[in-house]
């Protein structure tokens, strides 16, 4: 009898130990492949680039340690700060327009009941699936003054066609491409957040006689805050990294987009046109730092306000 009883007890103990070990190990096994790749392709290059940013590799004189010279040079580099300032101004307008549209679309689709909403959702999301270079090429064609349809459209309406690739319109034109590409992506994040809002809240509000508009203002938007925060931070970082669109349009509009139009474009050209990898590394770290500061400042401000 006793043996019969003790045997299963034994077994439960060992299995539970084994399963405990297994359970403890499981997360590491799952994230393991990622961590390896992350260390190899992200952490190591970052360390190497950081190290490299303290050297100068000159055509005459070779590689020398220069301390913080590259960073000092970047702080005095008006082209770099012009580019940073340009994307920040660009972002303030573009991110607000894009996220307003995303939120409106998400709320609209969430309200729809028929199958049509699937069509809308997919249609708005689809541009995100188009590679940014392809998107920029496509829009570049639409913008062009002789072969694109915009001059014809303007003609039909009877207004003079704006030159969308001219210096005064270029930021608008790029903003349009970026918004078109990312409005759906942000919409999906916001839409998912909408779905987690319990319907009972709306039912209660309805009983209290709240209008649809009041419901949106007092229930939906406050509960969307985390999703809006997230999409805003992503968008701030994305804006600072603005690259593929201006790079692609540059060939079409050398009068409007120079090699230091955005910080990333500038860093890339320093690295691979001028072969000054050390300076490019320093510039890249400063861009990263700016993205960090802006994102954190945004989170700080937006959380402060409501506590």
């Amino acid at each position: 009898m006793t043996t019969v009883i003790s045997a299963p007890r034994e077994r439960t103990r060992t299995t539970s130990l084994r399963s405990r070990v297994r359970r403890a190990l499981a997360p590491y096994i799952f994230v393991g492949p990622f961590l390896v790749a992350f260390a190899l392709f992200m952490v190591l290059p970052l360390i190497s680039a950081f190290n490299n940013s303290f050297y100068a590799d000159r055509l005459v004189g070779g590689r020398v340690f220069v301390g913080f010279d590259n960073y000092r040079r970047a702080f005095d580099d008006s082209l770099f700060w012009q580019s940073a300032w340009r994307v920040i101004r660009f972002g303030v307008v573009q991110v607000i327009v894009m996220l307003t549209l995303s939120t409106m679309f998400a709320i609209g689709i969430n309200r729809m009941t028929s199958w049509v909403r699937h069509v809308y959702r997919l249609g708005i999301f689809l541009p995100f699936a188009i590679p940014s270079v392809v998107a920029a090429l496509m829009w570049g064609y639409l913008y062009s003054k002789n072969i694109g349809p915009i001059p014809d459209l303007a003609d039909a309406i009877g207004t003079p066609a704006v030159e969308l690739l001219s210096p005064s319109w270029i930021l608008f034109s790029i903003g349009n491409i970026v918004t078109w590409s990312f409005v759906g992506y942000n919409m999906i994040i916001i839409y998912a957040a909408l779905q987690t809002i319990p319907p009972s809240l709306y039912e209660a509000a309805e009983l209290d006689g709240a209008t649809k508009f009041q419901q949106t203002r007092t229930i939906t938007l406050p509960l969307l805050r985390p999703a809006l925060l997230l999409t805003t931070v992503f968008s701030i970082i994305g804006t600072l990294q603005l690259f593929a669109e201006p790079e692609t349009l540059r060939r079409l509009a050398p009068q409007s987009i120079n090699s230091s139009f955005t910080p990333n474009l500038y860093a890339l050209n320093i690295a691979f046109v001028s072969n000054d990898l050390s300076y490019a590394a320093a510039v890249s770290f400063i861009i990263g730092f700016i993205a960090f500061v802006l994102s954190y400042a945004f989170m700080f401000v937006s959380t402060k306000r409501n506590t």
């Binding site: 992200m42 680039a49 992503f234 540059r250």
Partner: peptide
């Protein structure tokens, strides 16, 4: 995410250099 930004800056120049040089 910031690290990603910085690392991305060090990397790929494929489509870029084509148009320029």
């Amino acid at each position: 995410t910031v690290a990603t930004v910085a690392a991305a800056c060090g990397g790929s120049g494929d489509d870029a250099s084509e148009a320029t040089t």
